[in-house]
Amino acid sequence: MTNETDSSESAITIPLLTEPRRCCGGGGCAVKPEPSQGSQFLKQGGWLAIALPLWFLIYHYLQPFANYLTMNVFGLDPTSHLGSAVAFFLYDSPKVLMLLALVVLGVTFIQTFVSPERTRDILAKRAGAWSNLLASLLGIFTPFCSCSAVPLFIGFVRVGVPLGATFSFLVSAPMVNEVALFMLLGLFGWKIAGLYALTGVSIAFVSGWILGKLKMEQHLESWVMAIPYNAQAAADYKMGFTDRLDASIQGVREIVGKVWPYIIVGIAVGAFIHGYVPEALMARFMGKGAWWSVPLAVIIGVPLYSNAAGVMPIVQALLGKGAALGTVLAFMMAVIGLSLPETIIL
């Protein structure tokens, strides 16, 4: 017999737990998967050993292949408007998707080592400007769902993480997107990726530091400190290598499966810009000379229905047409960090 309350119906409020919590110390909450078997390891290791070189091989030949398709199969002149747009689309769609898959694989793998609980415990021991810097950096990699912002905030403050560091973390986490960071690295090199990370981390650092200086602690609503809170140890899985790899592959499936339509749309927009928008126009609107280009880019970016991966091809096309780097970065961070649609999707 299943005694189940319908989960899709209205929220049910449950009285506070009165019995003492059977809290498991030292990672006892963790799932204990069966010991990873050697054969499983070999199977996955072998899979990776074939897939990774193949990935690089295909990636390397994407450009000539896209050019060949455009010229010989579709019979388009690659210097024409339509031809260059089509070539851009054919080259960028597989390229961005492949890069995304690799980046998500790596990032998810790294994220199996970090959790908000662990970040909290690291930050609880720090104070001063260092705590802000550390919080800003950890914010890049800690996996974090935007719906968690409020409990995360309370959880951090309750175990003694300075308020400023908590803010630094909460600013940095959505602003510097780890997937976007490595996509930028793959598509444009370390200078642009570094500029992106540095901008986000600086803003998170400075805003958290200022908020910490303002001594806002007394303004916290009293219930924040009054509600019972049993800080739980990081409940992350005790994982072996194969489990982490499994989680990474699952991450790739879920994320790439979810965002590929946005990427295709992004690439289509990028292809249009690449083929049809004249450089002179772009330079006038988004070039270095126009002081209003940065705020304008932010305003255009906010309502855009896109996400980290989908905006990459647009960024690429804008840069290729001579838009100023700062303007494009402002545009990108607006799309990723402030985008309302992405919050809703999550």
């Binding site: 929220a11 049910i12 409020t13 449950i14 506070l16 737990l17 919590r21 809290c23 959790s115 908000p116 609980e117 909290r120 974090f144 769902c145 968690s148 409020v150 409990p151 995360l152 309370i154 959880g155 951090f156 219930w223 509600i227 019972p228 809170y229 049993n230 800080a231 739980q232």
Partner: peptide, 14 residues
């Protein structure tokens, strides 16, 4: 469990 104090009471942060 959707109420924030209730979630916190369970020691859940994320």
């Amino acid at each position: 469990v959707t109420e924030m104090p209730q979630i916190m009471a369970r020691g859940v942060m994320s």
